[in-house]
Structures are given as structure tokens and as C-alpha cells.
Computed example of a mutant assay.
Amino acid sequence: MLTHGLDPAERRAPERVEETELRQRQAGLEQFLQVAAPKLDQLFGLLGHSGCAVLLTDAEGVVLDQRCAEGDASIFEDWGLWQGADWSEAAEGTNGIGTCIAEDRRVIIHRDEHFLARNTAMSCMDAPIYGADGRIMAALDVSSARSDQTEAFNRLIGAMVAQTARQIEADNFRAAYPRARILYADHDDSEAAMLLAVDGDDIVVGATRAARKAFGLGQAVAIRPVPASDIFGREDGPRGFEKAERAAVIRALARAGGNVSEAARALGIGRATLYRRMKRLGFNESIGDLSQD
């Protein structure tokens, strides 16, 4: 791969980060790794008997966790399919992990599709995992060096990898919003994690990458607050006048982007009246930047 100055014939050992750096990377994603661990165990339970290793990397392609059979451990470690190994495209050229991250999509890299000759005995099936902020945060990989592994079997494994990646993404999203109501949005894309986090005032405060795209919430880290009823095209029934009034004010402010004057006009009241109601209802300025215009 000329872009990275790599020679496909080179036989150097896979690059690895220092132990201290590996621990720092793991500590930075501690909650995510805890959430993902049961799903890694489950996936390995299904595939481990067939000579496969399961790996989880960070967004830069560094392996943070892995599962493999005890008898295969030394082999996978020699191949670099182990904690601390750098499988970015810059380090290894075309490969399952690095290419998945670089192209932001699920991939299957079968044997001689790898760039480096020393990796051409492998088949790698990968899927990206997106964080609660909508950005790619990890790659899930299943690798095998079985000589009899067919492309059809790779596709089957690839589907399992993609499904597990979405499960991890959904579990991580729920963990990121422990106090919110999590709504599942049905969608044609069965592989996408379509989840919304909604607070007690019916305001969407978080969304997975697929939900952001489907509902036009933007790809910025912090989404624009929007009433859930606006997204789903319905109004929830009030549960008491004060709660209904509070929800109505919050929705008006969210729709107006925090502009109090515009929200007041939408509610059919004066700005001073809206400020008095906001004070009575115990509002703070958490719904965007409350404009004075």
C-alpha cells in the first residue's frame, strides 16, 4: 500500500502498542468493554469451536480484548491477533479491522485480499460499532486461518458479527443514558441500532447513529433537542395540567431553538407571560441557549 509506505512482501511482526498505552486505552473505554464482554463471550461460544478468534478494537484499530481457544492462543498471538496489536490500515494495509474502520462499513477480507503477504492465510469478518455520540468507536472482528474456510462460510460469520456489533452498540447506548426512556424505532435496515433516548419531558436527548440519520437529527456529537412526539407524529396525552403545561413549554422552546420570543408567539402568549410561567414551573436554561431576541 503505497499510501502508507508498506511493502506487501515484508515479514516483520505486527506492531503493538506499549503495555502502558494499552492499559490507558482500555481504561478510557472501561464501561464500553464491560458492556461488550458478554456479547464477545456469546459470539465466541458460537464460533470458537471452528478455530476462530473474536477481537474488539478501539477506533484506531488497536486490539483491546479478544477471545480464542486456549490451544490456539500462541498461534493467534504470533499472528498479532492479540491485545495491543495495531491493525490500522497504516500499520497493516488492507485488512479486516483497518479497512472496516477506514471505510466505515462492515467488510470481509478473505485470504489473499489482505495487503501483506504474511496475512493472506487469514479470513477476517468485521463490523463497526458506533458510540452513543454517533461516531465510530470500535470494530468487532472474527478472524480465522483455516485453509478450508469458504467465502460462503465467511458471509455467514459476517452476518453474525454485524448482528453482535449492533447488540453491543444498543447495550452501550442504553448504558450511556441510564435515566432516560429508550425508544426503539422500527426501520427497514435490520442491521442498524435505531434507538432514541427521551427524558421525562418528552425531549429526545440522545440517538444512535442510524436514528440520527433516519430522523434528520444531525451527526454532531450533541443533537438538537426535539420533542419525541414531533418525530413520531403524535402527541402524548397529558398527565395532569402542570405536567402538560411544562411539556408544552419545553416543546415550544425546543422547536424555537431556545428563542423565548418565538416560543411565546407559538404558544399565543407574550414573552413576559412565558417567562413568568417558566419561573413558576421551575425551569432552568437547559433547553438550548434561551435567546432574548
Rank of each mutant, 00 (worst) to 15 (best):
R280E: 01
R105G: 07
D201V: 03
R209Y: 11
A247T: 14
R251M: 03
Q219K: 05
D126V: 09
C68L: 05
G233E: 01
D148S: 13
V142N: 00
A210L: 04
F44M: 03
A73M: 09
E245V: 14
V221T: 06
K243R: 14
G206N: 08
Q42D: 09
T208M: 04
P238L: 07
G216Y: 12
S147L: 12
D141E: 08
Q219C: 00
G237S: 09
A197L: 10
Q34S: 14
M160A: 09
A37L: 12
D141L: 02
A139T: 04
A210T: 06
W82F: 15
E92Y: 10
Q34R: 15
F232I: 00
A192H: 02
A162Y: 03
A69H: 08
D188V: 10
A175G: 09
A175T: 10
A121Q: 11
L43T: 05
E77T: 12
A9E: 07
T120W: 01
L267R: 04
Q163P: 00
L217T: 06
Q219A: 12
L253S: 06
T208K: 02
A210G: 09
I231V: 13
S291L: 07
R239P: 00
A244K: 10
E103C: 03
H4D: 03
F153S: 02
D189P: 09
S50Y: 15
E103Q: 09
G268D: 02
A244D: 04
V62T: 08
V142W: 04
G98A: 06
A102Y: 05
A73C: 04
D289K: 15
Q34I: 13
M137E: 11
E151K: 10
E19Q: 14
C124S: 05
A53T: 15
H110R: 01
D104M: 11
I231P: 02
E245R: 15
G5P: 02
I203Y: 03
M137H: 05
T99A: 04
V226S: 00
L29M: 08
E151W: 10
G237W: 11
R239D: 10
G98T: 01
D78I: 11
T273F: 08
Q24S: 14
R146H: 10
C52S: 04
R12C: 08
R67W: 01
G216D: 09
K243V: 14
P8W: 04
R246K: 15
E70A: 15
P128F: 07
A263G: 03
E151R: 12
G80R: 01
Q219R: 12
A222I: 06
R280I: 03
V35I: 13
I203K: 01
P8S: 07
I108T: 06
D133I: 11
I287D: 00
Q31C: 10
H114I: 02
R16T: 14
G134N: 01
T273M: 11
D230A: 12
A266G: 05
G51R: 02
Y184S: 11
E60L: 10
L267K: 03
I231K: 03
L156M: 12
R11H: 06
H49M: 06
V63G: 01
E262I: 13
A185W: 07
I182K: 01
E30A: 13
G258M: 11
E113D: 10
L6P: 05
D236L: 08
I287E: 00
L6D: 01
R181C: 08
G98D: 00
F115N: 00
V142G: 02
R155S: 12
P8V: 05
R12E: 06
A159D: 09
F44E: 00
V35T: 10
T20K: 07
D133E: 09
R239Q: 15
L33F: 13
R118T: 11
